[in-house]
């Protein structure tokens, strides 16, 4: 088994607040890991550590064989990791001054020096793949939320990442648009993409995840196959959380 992500005894503080406590977690190639937990439990912070958007204070974090040092050390490893790890944000974070296609072409051109014609072809192919080929020359604000999030996924895929991080990708969407984004993610998972997904979509977690992780107050309190975690949670915190979110 090849580990793409490996965390050992990782701790993270926001000031005095201890947000991640002794996290041990490894993610294997091709694995889809869904992280669930109440808001403020540290689940977003956890995946934001993977590509260095958050620094951690102690412990070990290795991504794609690159060791990240605590407190933002080892900038070289960080920059290597970011080229290999894609991220999709809750608020999409598309670049409003660039067309949809240019949003996707920017990173390959700037980071990998991909020639414009190649970047252009890749962008068109990816837009077709996420089902919005006809919107290539529009500006992001002219798209619906669901379309914007699909562009954001295409933008991350353009860098041919080995791992994709999803930080609550459907939380800012109107209900009728959640499905179209989850479909694209489901497809990615089927194609073998390694994914770490923070979400409140329990149906998606049950269906797509290889492993579900429940985080409570910065600690991994339970993890396992989705059916085990959802149907037969062992920890009482998990039981309480699931009875709250699955009740309706």
């Amino acid at each position: 088994m090849t580990h793409i992500v490996q965390m050992k005894g990782m701790n993270k503080y926001f000031g005095k607040l201890h947000v991640l406590k002794d996290i041990d977690l490894s993610v294997e190639q091709g694995e889809v890991v869904v992280i669930i937990g109440a808001s403020g439990s540290g689940k977003s912070t956890l995946i934001r550590c993977v590509n260095g958007l958050e620094e951690f204070e102690s412990g070990q974090l290795e991504v794609e064989g690159q060791k990240l040092a605590p407190k933002g050390g080892n900038q070289e490893a960080l920059s290597n990791i970011r080229k290999e790890v894609g991220m999709v944000f809750q608020q999409f974070n598309l670049f409003p001054h660039l067309t949809v296609k240019k949003n996707i072409m920017l990173a390959p051109q700037k980071v990998k020096n991909t020639p414009q014609t190649v970047a252009n072809a890749t962008a068109e192919r990816l837009l077709e793949r996420v089902g919005i080929g006809s919107q290539a020359d529009k500006y992001p604000t002219h798209l619906s939320g669901g379309q914007q999030q699909r562009v954001a996924i295409a933008r991350a895929l353009a860098m041919e990442p080995r791992l994709m991080l999803f930080d609550e990708p459907t939380s800012a969407l109107d209900p009728e648009m959640i499905g179209e984004v989850l479909d694209v993610m489901r497809e990615l998972a089927r194609e073998g993409m390694t994914m770490m997904v923070v979400t409140h979509e329990m149906g998606f977690a049950r269906e797509v995840a290889d492993r579900v992780i429940y985080i409570h107050e910065g600690q991994i309190v339970e993890q396992g196959k989705p059916d085990d975690v959802f149907d037969n949670p062992q920890n009482e915190r998990t039981q309480a959380f699931l009875s709250r979110v699955l009740a309706h």
Binding site: N51, H97, L106, K110
Partner: peptide, 29 residues
């Protein structure tokens, strides 16, 4: 928005690239 630079950095752009190709054009406007 901070999300703009996070998006740039997460795509592998350096801080300088993120600033001049993402932040500055929007800020200038």
């Amino acid at each position: 928005d901070k999300g703009q630079s996070e998006a740039g950095l997460s795509l592998g752009l350096s801080r300088t690239q993120t600033f001049w190709s993402i932040i500055w054009p929007q800020a200038f406007r």
